[in-house]
Design a binder for these strands. Sequence first.
DNA 1: TAACCTACGGAACAAACTATTCCGTTCTAG
DNA 2: CTAGAACGGAATAGTTTGTTCCGTAGGTTA
Lengths: 213, 213
Amino acid sequence: METTTPAPMSGRKAQAARNDQTILQAARAVFVADPGAPIAAVAERAGVGISALYRRYASKEILLRKLCSDGLKIYIAEAEAALADERDPWTVFADFMRRIVDADTHSLTLNLAGTFAPDEDLFRESEYAESLAVRVFERARDAGVLRPGLEVSDLSMIFEQLAAVHLVDEERTVEMRHRYLELILDGLHLTSAEPLPGPPPTPEEIGRRWIVT
Amino acid sequence: METTTPAPMSGRKAQAARNDQTILQAARAVFVADPGAPIAAVAERAGVGISALYRRYASKEILLRKLCSDGLKIYIAEAEAALADERDPWTVFADFMRRIVDADTHSLTLNLAGTFAPDEDLFRESEYAESLAVRVFERARDAGVLRPGLEVSDLSMIFEQLAAVHLVDEERTVEMRHRYLELILDGLHLTSAEPLPGPPPTPEEIGRRWIVT
DNA sequence: TAACCTACGGAACAAACTATTCCGTTCTAG
DNA sequence: CTAGAACGGAATAGTTTGTTCCGTAGGTTA
Protein backbone atom coordinates (compact mmCIF):
# COMPACT_ATOMS: atom_id res chain seq x y z
CA MET A 1 0.00 0.00 0.00
CA GLU A 2 1.34 3.36 -1.02
CA THR A 3 0.70 6.61 0.81
CA THR A 4 1.14 10.13 -0.51
CA THR A 5 2.85 11.19 2.69
CA PRO A 6 6.48 11.42 1.73
CA ALA A 7 7.87 9.50 4.67
CA PRO A 8 6.73 8.15 8.04
CA MET A 9 8.81 10.84 9.73
CA SER A 10 10.51 8.19 11.74
CA GLY A 11 12.76 5.53 10.37
CA ARG A 12 16.38 5.89 9.57
CA LYS A 13 15.92 7.48 6.17
CA ALA A 14 13.74 10.28 7.43
CA GLN A 15 16.17 11.02 10.22
CA ALA A 16 18.98 11.18 7.73
CA ALA A 17 17.03 13.47 5.45
CA ARG A 18 16.37 15.76 8.35
CA ASN A 19 20.05 15.74 9.19
CA ASP A 20 20.82 16.88 5.68
CA GLN A 21 19.00 20.10 6.43
CA THR A 22 20.16 20.49 9.99
CA ILE A 23 23.77 20.12 9.02
CA LEU A 24 23.63 22.68 6.27
CA GLN A 25 21.88 25.18 8.48
CA ALA A 26 24.37 24.64 11.25
CA ALA A 27 27.29 24.94 8.88
CA ARG A 28 25.94 28.21 7.53
CA ALA A 29 25.40 29.64 10.97
CA VAL A 30 28.78 28.58 12.24
CA PHE A 31 30.84 29.73 9.27
CA VAL A 32 29.03 33.04 9.01
CA ALA A 33 29.86 33.69 12.64
CA ASP A 34 33.44 32.50 12.29
CA PRO A 35 34.88 31.69 8.88
CA GLY A 36 37.74 29.74 10.39
CA ALA A 37 35.60 27.61 12.64
CA PRO A 38 36.57 23.96 12.99
CA ILE A 39 34.38 21.34 11.48
CA ALA A 40 33.71 19.92 14.90
CA ALA A 41 31.88 23.13 15.76
CA VAL A 42 29.49 22.52 12.91
CA ALA A 43 28.79 19.00 14.11
CA GLU A 44 28.19 20.21 17.62
CA ARG A 45 25.86 22.96 16.54
CA ALA A 46 23.94 20.51 14.42
CA GLY A 47 23.75 18.11 17.32
CA VAL A 48 25.28 15.27 15.35
CA GLY A 49 28.55 13.42 15.37
CA ILE A 50 31.44 14.24 13.12
CA SER A 51 30.96 11.19 10.97
CA ALA A 52 27.49 12.37 10.04
CA LEU A 53 29.22 15.29 8.41
CA TYR A 54 31.89 13.30 6.64
CA ARG A 55 29.33 10.88 5.30
CA ARG A 56 27.86 13.80 3.35
CA TYR A 57 30.85 15.95 2.50
CA ALA A 58 34.20 14.33 1.93
CA SER A 59 36.09 17.38 3.15
CA LYS A 60 35.66 20.75 4.67
CA GLU A 61 36.37 22.44 1.40
CA ILE A 62 33.59 20.57 -0.33
CA LEU A 63 31.17 21.62 2.38
CA LEU A 64 32.24 25.22 1.95
CA ARG A 65 31.68 25.03 -1.76
CA LYS A 66 28.25 23.58 -1.19
CA LEU A 67 27.33 26.48 1.06
CA CYS A 68 28.53 29.00 -1.46
CA SER A 69 26.75 27.26 -4.25
CA ASP A 70 23.49 27.27 -2.32
CA GLY A 71 23.90 30.97 -1.70
CA LEU A 72 24.39 31.58 -5.39
CA LYS A 73 21.29 29.57 -6.21
CA ILE A 74 19.24 31.81 -3.96
CA TYR A 75 20.76 34.89 -5.51
CA ILE A 76 19.94 33.57 -8.95
CA ALA A 77 16.38 32.81 -7.98
CA GLU A 78 15.86 36.29 -6.60
CA ALA A 79 17.36 37.91 -9.65
CA GLU A 80 15.14 35.88 -11.93
CA ALA A 81 12.14 36.85 -9.85
CA ALA A 82 13.12 40.49 -10.19
CA LEU A 83 13.40 40.17 -13.96
CA ALA A 84 9.90 38.71 -14.07
CA ASP A 85 8.51 41.47 -11.85
CA GLU A 86 6.28 43.89 -13.73
CA ARG A 87 5.99 46.66 -11.20
CA ASP A 88 7.69 50.00 -11.61
CA PRO A 89 11.44 49.76 -12.13
CA TRP A 90 12.54 51.38 -8.91
CA THR A 91 10.32 49.22 -6.73
CA VAL A 92 11.54 46.12 -8.47
CA PHE A 93 15.15 47.12 -8.04
CA ALA A 94 14.82 48.14 -4.40
CA ASP A 95 12.89 45.01 -3.53
CA PHE A 96 15.52 42.88 -5.16
CA MET A 97 18.12 44.41 -2.93
CA ARG A 98 15.95 43.99 0.14
CA ARG A 99 15.41 40.33 -0.58
CA ILE A 100 19.09 39.69 -1.12
CA VAL A 101 19.84 41.31 2.21
CA ASP A 102 17.17 39.15 3.81
CA ALA A 103 18.61 36.01 2.29
CA ASP A 104 22.03 37.04 3.56
CA THR A 105 23.78 35.43 0.65
CA HIS A 106 26.84 37.63 0.98
CA SER A 107 27.96 36.80 4.49
CA LEU A 108 29.79 33.76 3.26
CA THR A 109 31.12 35.48 0.19
CA LEU A 110 32.55 38.19 2.36
CA ASN A 111 34.07 35.92 4.95
CA LEU A 112 35.25 33.05 2.83
CA ALA A 113 36.81 34.85 -0.12
CA GLY A 114 40.21 33.34 -0.64
CA THR A 115 39.89 30.56 1.90
CA PHE A 116 39.04 27.81 -0.55
CA ALA A 117 39.52 27.10 -4.22
CA PRO A 118 36.43 27.83 -6.29
CA ASP A 119 35.01 24.97 -8.29
CA GLU A 120 34.52 24.92 -12.00
CA ASP A 121 30.80 24.65 -11.34
CA LEU A 122 30.89 27.38 -8.74
CA PHE A 123 32.59 29.59 -11.26
CA ARG A 124 29.90 28.97 -13.84
CA GLU A 125 27.09 29.61 -11.38
CA SER A 126 28.78 32.77 -10.30
CA GLU A 127 29.08 34.00 -13.86
CA TYR A 128 25.43 33.32 -14.48
CA ALA A 129 24.37 35.06 -11.28
CA GLU A 130 26.41 38.06 -12.28
CA SER A 131 24.86 38.19 -15.72
CA LEU A 132 21.42 38.27 -14.15
CA ALA A 133 22.47 41.01 -11.77
CA VAL A 134 23.61 43.02 -14.74
CA ARG A 135 20.20 42.74 -16.32
CA VAL A 136 18.39 43.69 -13.13
CA PHE A 137 20.65 46.67 -12.71
CA GLU A 138 20.48 47.83 -16.30
CA ARG A 139 16.75 47.70 -16.35
CA ALA A 140 16.68 50.13 -13.46
CA ARG A 141 19.33 52.33 -14.96
CA ASP A 142 17.66 52.45 -18.36
CA ALA A 143 14.43 53.44 -16.67
CA GLY A 144 16.30 56.44 -15.25
CA VAL A 145 15.64 55.67 -11.61
CA LEU A 146 19.27 55.41 -10.57
CA ARG A 147 21.80 58.02 -9.62
CA PRO A 148 24.16 58.68 -12.53
CA GLY A 149 27.54 57.02 -12.58
CA LEU A 150 26.53 53.84 -10.80
CA GLU A 151 27.71 50.47 -12.03
CA VAL A 152 26.65 46.90 -11.40
CA SER A 153 29.82 46.28 -9.50
CA ASP A 154 28.65 48.80 -6.94
CA LEU A 155 25.95 46.34 -5.97
CA SER A 156 28.43 43.69 -4.90
CA MET A 157 30.30 46.14 -2.78
CA ILE A 158 27.12 47.39 -1.15
CA PHE A 159 25.93 43.89 -0.36
CA GLU A 160 29.25 43.12 1.22
CA GLN A 161 29.16 46.24 3.30
CA LEU A 162 25.76 45.31 4.61
CA ALA A 163 26.90 41.79 5.33
CA ALA A 164 29.55 43.29 7.57
CA VAL A 165 26.89 44.55 9.94
CA HIS A 166 27.05 42.23 12.91
CA LEU A 167 25.46 42.28 16.33
CA VAL A 168 25.37 39.36 18.69
CA ASP A 169 21.66 38.82 18.17
CA GLU A 170 20.92 37.48 14.73
CA GLU A 171 17.47 38.94 14.41
CA ARG A 172 18.66 42.39 15.32
CA THR A 173 21.45 42.01 12.81
CA VAL A 174 18.97 41.57 10.00
CA GLU A 175 17.00 44.54 11.27
CA MET A 176 20.10 46.69 11.28
CA ARG A 177 21.03 45.64 7.77
CA HIS A 178 17.67 46.81 6.54
CA ARG A 179 18.12 50.05 8.40
CA TYR A 180 21.28 50.86 6.49
CA LEU A 181 20.01 49.41 3.25
CA GLU A 182 17.22 52.00 3.26
CA LEU A 183 19.80 54.69 3.83
CA ILE A 184 21.80 53.48 0.88
CA LEU A 185 18.76 53.00 -1.32
CA ASP A 186 17.87 56.63 -0.79
CA GLY A 187 21.32 57.55 -1.97
CA LEU A 188 21.05 55.29 -5.00
CA HIS A 189 17.70 56.84 -5.93
CA LEU A 190 18.97 60.40 -6.05
CA THR A 191 18.60 60.60 -9.81
CA SER A 192 19.81 64.14 -10.11
CA ALA A 193 22.67 64.00 -7.62
CA GLU A 194 26.30 64.17 -8.55
CA PRO A 195 27.96 60.91 -9.59
CA LEU A 196 29.88 59.26 -6.78
CA PRO A 197 33.60 59.99 -6.59
CA GLY A 198 36.28 57.64 -7.82
CA PRO A 199 35.90 55.12 -10.60
CA PRO A 200 33.63 52.23 -9.58
CA PRO A 201 35.28 48.88 -8.88
CA THR A 202 36.05 46.91 -11.99
CA PRO A 203 34.86 43.32 -12.27
CA GLU A 204 38.47 42.31 -12.17
CA GLU A 205 39.09 44.08 -8.90
CA ILE A 206 36.12 42.32 -7.40
CA GLY A 207 37.03 38.92 -8.72
CA ARG A 208 40.70 38.99 -7.85
CA ARG A 209 39.93 38.60 -4.17
CA TRP A 210 38.88 35.02 -4.79
CA ILE A 211 42.26 33.85 -5.90
CA VAL A 212 43.67 31.43 -3.39
CA THR A 213 47.19 32.13 -2.31
CA MET B 1 78.92 69.34 21.89
CA GLU B 2 75.19 69.20 21.42
CA THR B 3 73.40 69.54 18.13
CA THR B 4 69.76 70.38 17.50
CA THR B 5 69.46 67.65 14.91
CA PRO B 6 67.52 64.90 16.65
CA ALA B 7 69.84 62.09 15.66
CA PRO B 8 72.63 61.36 13.21
CA MET B 9 70.23 59.08 11.31
CA SER B 10 72.73 56.30 11.59
CA GLY B 11 73.76 54.58 14.74
CA ARG B 12 71.94 51.87 16.57
CA LYS B 13 69.53 54.15 18.35
CA ALA B 14 68.29 55.83 15.22
CA GLN B 15 67.83 52.49 13.56
CA ALA B 16 65.85 51.31 16.54
CA ALA B 17 63.68 54.41 16.53
CA ARG B 18 62.95 53.84 12.88
CA ASN B 19 62.06 50.26 13.64
CA ASP B 20 59.52 51.46 16.17
CA GLN B 21 57.61 53.06 13.35
CA THR B 22 58.19 50.34 10.81
CA ILE B 23 56.97 47.67 13.13
CA LEU B 24 53.78 49.46 14.02
CA GLN B 25 53.00 50.17 10.40
CA ALA B 26 53.68 46.60 9.44
CA ALA B 27 51.56 45.28 12.28
CA ARG B 28 48.69 47.48 11.26
CA ALA B 29 48.89 46.44 7.65
CA VAL B 30 49.16 42.77 8.46
CA PHE B 31 46.38 42.58 11.04
CA VAL B 32 44.02 44.66 8.96
CA ALA B 33 44.51 42.23 6.12
CA ASP B 34 44.24 39.16 8.35
CA PRO B 35 43.23 39.51 11.99
CA GLY B 36 44.53 36.07 12.83
CA ALA B 37 47.91 36.54 11.23
CA PRO B 38 50.91 35.07 13.06
CA ILE B 39 53.33 37.43 14.67
CA ALA B 40 56.06 36.18 12.40
CA ALA B 41 54.16 37.70 9.49
CA VAL B 42 54.45 41.10 11.11
CA ALA B 43 58.17 40.70 11.56
CA GLU B 44 58.62 39.63 7.99
CA ARG B 45 56.59 42.51 6.64
CA ALA B 46 58.58 44.94 8.75
CA GLY B 47 61.80 43.37 7.52
CA VAL B 48 63.03 42.67 11.02
CA GLY B 49 63.54 39.61 13.16
CA ILE B 50 61.06 38.33 15.66
CA SER B 51 63.09 39.44 18.62
CA ALA B 52 62.88 43.05 17.46
CA LEU B 53 59.17 42.69 18.02
CA TYR B 54 59.35 41.02 21.39
CA ARG B 55 61.83 43.59 22.62
CA ARG B 56 59.06 46.18 22.20
CA TYR B 57 55.89 44.30 22.98
CA ALA B 58 55.96 41.52 25.50
CA SER B 59 53.17 39.64 23.81
CA LYS B 60 50.91 39.65 20.81
CA GLU B 61 48.01 40.85 22.87
CA ILE B 62 49.92 43.88 24.06
CA LEU B 63 50.80 44.75 20.50
CA LEU B 64 47.17 44.45 19.52
CA ARG B 65 46.14 46.74 22.32
CA LYS B 66 48.73 49.25 21.25
CA LEU B 67 47.35 49.28 17.73
CA CYS B 68 43.83 49.77 18.99
CA SER B 69 44.90 52.48 21.33
CA ASP B 70 46.68 54.35 18.56
CA GLY B 71 43.56 54.14 16.46
CA LEU B 72 41.50 55.58 19.25
CA LYS B 73 43.95 58.43 19.70
CA ILE B 74 43.53 59.38 16.07
CA TYR B 75 39.79 59.17 16.37
CA ILE B 76 39.90 61.41 19.42
CA ALA B 77 42.11 63.92 17.68
CA GLU B 78 39.78 64.10 14.70
CA ALA B 79 36.74 64.49 16.89
CA GLU B 80 38.38 67.28 18.84
CA ALA B 81 39.31 68.98 15.60
CA ALA B 82 35.70 68.74 14.46
CA LEU B 83 34.48 70.30 17.70
CA ALA B 84 36.86 73.19 17.17
CA ASP B 85 35.77 73.63 13.56
CA GLU B 86 33.67 76.75 13.03
CA ARG B 87 32.35 76.10 9.57
CA ASP B 88 28.74 75.22 8.92
CA PRO B 89 27.51 72.22 10.85
CA TRP B 90 26.95 69.90 7.94
CA THR B 91 30.37 70.50 6.44
CA VAL B 92 31.99 69.91 9.78
CA PHE B 93 30.10 66.71 10.32
CA ALA B 94 30.68 65.34 6.83
CA ASP B 95 34.36 66.20 6.94
CA PHE B 96 34.71 64.48 10.26
CA MET B 97 33.37 61.31 8.73
CA ARG B 98 35.61 61.66 5.71
CA ARG B 99 38.67 62.02 7.85
CA ILE B 100 37.80 59.03 9.98
CA VAL B 101 37.40 56.96 6.86
CA ASP B 102 40.76 58.22 5.64
CA ALA B 103 42.44 57.34 8.91
CA ASP B 104 40.89 53.88 8.68
CA THR B 105 40.59 53.59 12.43
CA HIS B 106 37.81 51.04 12.27
CA SER B 107 39.45 48.27 10.33
CA LEU B 108 41.05 46.92 13.46
CA THR B 109 37.99 47.48 15.54
CA LEU B 110 35.96 45.51 13.08
CA ASN B 111 38.38 42.66 12.73
CA LEU B 112 39.70 42.35 16.22
CA ALA B 113 36.52 42.64 18.26
CA GLY B 114 36.52 39.80 20.72
CA THR B 115 39.99 38.49 19.92
CA PHE B 116 41.76 40.11 22.85
CA ALA B 117 40.84 41.42 26.26
CA PRO B 118 40.47 45.19 26.37
CA ASP B 119 42.67 47.05 28.77
CA GLU B 120 41.49 49.29 31.55
CA ASP B 121 43.18 52.17 29.74
CA LEU B 122 41.77 51.13 26.43
CA PHE B 123 38.35 51.14 27.96
CA ARG B 124 38.78 54.65 29.27
CA GLU B 125 40.07 55.94 25.96
CA SER B 126 37.19 54.32 24.23
CA GLU B 127 34.69 55.97 26.56
CA TYR B 128 36.24 59.34 25.98
CA ALA B 129 36.28 58.89 22.22
CA GLU B 130 32.64 57.97 22.32
CA SER B 131 31.74 61.01 24.38
CA LEU B 132 33.39 63.22 21.80
CA ALA B 133 31.56 61.47 19.01
CA VAL B 134 28.32 62.17 20.80
CA ARG B 135 29.11 65.86 20.88
CA VAL B 136 30.08 65.98 17.22
CA PHE B 137 26.93 64.17 16.32
CA GLU B 138 24.62 66.22 18.50
CA ARG B 139 25.94 69.45 17.18
CA ALA B 140 24.94 68.38 13.70
CA ARG B 141 21.62 67.06 14.84
CA ASP B 142 20.77 70.19 16.80
CA ALA B 143 21.61 72.26 13.77
CA GLY B 144 18.95 70.33 11.91
CA VAL B 145 21.19 69.02 9.17
CA LEU B 146 20.59 65.34 9.84
CA ARG B 147 17.87 63.00 8.78
CA PRO B 148 15.43 62.47 11.64
CA GLY B 149 15.72 59.35 13.76
CA LEU B 150 19.47 58.99 13.53
CA GLU B 151 21.53 58.17 16.60
CA VAL B 152 25.22 58.35 17.42
CA SER B 153 25.41 54.61 17.44
CA ASP B 154 24.57 54.68 13.75
CA LEU B 155 27.96 56.24 13.16
CA SER B 156 29.84 53.26 14.57
CA MET B 157 27.89 50.91 12.40
CA ILE B 158 28.48 53.00 9.31
CA PHE B 159 32.20 53.23 9.93
CA GLU B 160 32.36 49.51 10.32
CA GLN B 161 30.47 48.93 7.13
CA LEU B 162 32.89 51.12 5.25
CA ALA B 163 35.82 49.37 6.85
CA ALA B 164 34.50 46.16 5.35
CA VAL B 165 35.18 47.45 1.86
CA HIS B 166 38.27 45.61 0.71
CA LEU B 167 40.03 45.31 -2.59
CA VAL B 168 43.48 43.91 -3.06
CA ASP B 169 44.97 47.29 -3.78
CA GLU B 170 45.08 49.45 -0.71
CA GLU B 171 44.83 52.76 -2.46
CA ARG B 172 41.82 51.70 -4.42
CA THR B 173 40.26 50.47 -1.21
CA VAL B 174 40.40 53.93 0.29
CA GLU B 175 38.97 55.37 -2.90
CA MET B 176 36.08 52.95 -2.78
CA ARG B 177 35.35 53.72 0.83
CA HIS B 178 35.01 57.35 -0.04
CA ARG B 179 32.75 56.47 -2.92
CA TYR B 180 30.29 54.75 -0.60
CA LEU B 181 30.74 57.25 2.16
CA GLU B 182 29.43 59.97 -0.15
CA LEU B 183 26.48 57.78 -0.95
CA ILE B 184 25.73 57.34 2.73
CA LEU B 185 26.33 60.99 3.54
CA ASP B 186 23.69 61.93 1.01
CA GLY B 187 21.31 59.62 2.81
CA LEU B 188 22.20 61.07 6.18
CA HIS B 189 21.63 64.60 4.89
CA LEU B 190 18.08 63.98 3.73
CA THR B 191 16.63 66.15 6.47
CA SER B 192 13.03 65.68 5.44
CA ALA B 193 13.16 61.99 4.63
CA GLU B 194 11.47 59.31 6.64
CA PRO B 195 13.34 57.98 9.67
CA LEU B 196 15.19 54.77 8.99
CA PRO B 197 13.39 51.55 9.87
CA GLY B 198 14.07 49.55 13.00
CA PRO B 199 15.34 50.94 16.27
CA PRO B 200 18.98 52.06 16.03
CA PRO B 201 21.58 49.90 17.73
CA THR B 202 21.88 50.52 21.45
CA PRO B 203 25.27 51.26 22.97
CA GLU B 204 24.99 47.96 24.76
CA GLU B 205 24.47 46.03 21.54
CA ILE B 206 27.54 47.67 20.10
CA GLY B 207 29.70 47.12 23.15
CA ARG B 208 28.75 43.54 23.79
CA ARG B 209 30.73 42.37 20.80
CA TRP B 210 33.93 43.17 22.64
CA ILE B 211 33.45 40.66 25.36
CA VAL B 212 36.02 37.94 25.09
CA THR B 213 34.66 34.44 25.25
C1' DT C 1 14.19 -14.44 13.68
C1' DA C 2 18.88 -13.86 11.82
C1' DA C 3 22.08 -11.84 8.92
C1' DC C 4 23.20 -7.59 6.91
C1' DC C 5 23.78 -2.88 6.01
C1' DT C 6 23.26 2.02 6.61
C1' DA C 7 23.98 6.02 9.50
C1' DC C 8 26.09 7.37 13.36
C1' DG C 9 28.92 8.94 17.69
C1' DG C 10 33.05 10.19 19.10
C1' DA C 11 37.82 8.83 20.45
C1' DA C 12 42.30 8.70 18.30
C1' DC C 13 45.82 10.24 15.06
C1' DA C 14 48.92 12.90 12.63
C1' DA C 15 50.03 17.07 10.56
C1' DA C 16 50.33 21.94 10.84
C1' DC C 17 50.71 26.10 13.00
C1' DT C 18 52.21 29.62 16.18
C1' DA C 19 53.44 32.38 20.47
C1' DT C 20 57.38 32.68 22.97
C1' DT C 21 62.12 31.70 24.42
C1' DC C 22 66.99 31.38 23.79
C1' DC C 23 71.52 31.98 22.13
C1' DG C 24 75.07 33.57 19.23
C1' DT C 25 76.22 37.83 16.55
C1' DT C 26 76.73 42.68 15.32
C1' DC C 27 77.39 47.28 16.12
C1' DT C 28 78.19 51.41 18.89
C1' DA C 29 79.15 54.32 22.73
C1' DG C 30 82.47 55.55 25.90
C1' DC D 1 88.96 47.66 23.45
C1' DT D 2 84.94 46.19 26.03
C1' DA D 3 80.32 46.10 27.91
C1' DG D 4 75.95 45.84 26.52
C1' DA D 5 71.95 47.25 23.71
C1' DA D 6 69.55 45.55 19.66
C1' DC D 7 68.90 42.00 16.72
C1' DG D 8 68.18 37.60 13.62
C1' DG D 9 66.30 33.51 13.52
C1' DA D 10 66.40 28.54 14.93
C1' DA D 11 64.35 25.69 18.53
C1' DT D 12 60.63 24.73 21.78
C1' DA D 13 56.43 23.48 23.59
C1' DG D 14 51.71 23.74 23.36
C1' DT D 15 47.54 23.97 20.87
C1' DT D 16 44.42 23.35 17.20
C1' DT D 17 42.11 20.79 13.63
C1' DG D 18 41.01 17.91 9.46
C1' DT D 19 40.38 13.27 8.82
C1' DT D 20 40.22 8.33 9.87
C1' DC D 21 38.71 4.36 12.35
C1' DC D 22 36.08 1.32 15.05
C1' DG D 23 32.27 -0.20 17.73
C1' DT D 24 27.09 0.35 18.07
C1' DA D 25 22.16 0.71 17.08
C1' DG D 26 18.32 0.57 14.35
C1' DG D 27 16.02 -0.79 10.36
C1' DT D 28 15.45 -3.99 6.37
C1' DT D 29 15.16 -8.22 3.98
C1' DA D 30 14.81 -13.02 3.40
